[in-house]
């Protein structure tokens, strides 16, 4: 495997899963990714815990000017992070384990049974700066994660690095929601 690496297993994700189950309205708080125009996340619900400050630009030119004027890699905690303190030890544990020097986006994604994330590559600048990690909160056989020509099944409690600069897609052909905690970490290289 060149695009996937399982870097941990046996993580106790149940405190976070239980907290998510107790607060189902969190999935409705921020639909930025799901509603992104022509984006690959139409079947995905998200709980965005850390993300760059979002702006609404009227034109592509304005968006480019905005990006040029800020540090686009700077992510901030959202109010939802405070509602899920159980996520923080998982995130900071991963930061420590991989020798992280900066924490980027932290997002919990849920793909419904039968849903998919359509093939795409992540933004090159972002993928080059941060390393993408997945901590699996819930999954079941039938979920397929493809990156280029490689396929993996990521089981509950496992932590994976993967190459999000390459084309990837996810198909959830299981009977359960597929829920992952996604953590971007800048690593010392």
């Amino acid at each position: 495997m060149r695009n996937f690496l399982r870097i941990g297993q046996g993580t106790d994700v149940m405190p976070l899963m239980a907290a998510i189950m107790r607060q189902p309205d969190l999935w409705k708080e921020d639909t930025y990714l799901r509603d992104y125009p022509q984006g690959p996340f139409g079947d995905v619900d998200s709980i965005i815990l850390r993300f760059p400050k979002k702006i609404v630009a009227a034109t592509a030119e304005q968006a480019e000017q905005h990006l040029a004027s800020i540090d686009q890699h700077e992510s901030l905690d959202t109010p939802l992070y405070a509602a899920l303190p159980e996520a923080r030890p998982l995130v900071m544990g991963l930061m420590s384990y991989v020798g992280g020097t900066r924490l980027g986006r932290v997002i919990i994604n849920r793909i419904r049974p039968g849903g998919r994330i359509t093939p795409h590559c992540d933004t090159p600048d972002h993928a080059a700066y941060y390393e993408r990690h997945h901590i699996v909160l819930q999954s079941a056989p039938g979920v397929d994660f493809r990156c280029e020509d490689e396929h993996v099944y990521m089981g509950q409690g496992e932590t994976w690095w993967f190459n999000n600069a390459a084309e990837h897609e996810v198909v959830n052909n299981s009977a359960s929601d597929r829920i992952h905690l996604i953590v971007d970490v800048r690593c010392a290289r």
Binding site: P113, A140, P141, G142, N173, S174, A175, S176
Partner: peptide, 9 residues
């Protein structure tokens, strides 16, 4: 290789 339909083998 498992063939799956809605999670079922």
């Amino acid at each position: 290789v498992a063939l799956r339909d809605a999670g079922e083998l």
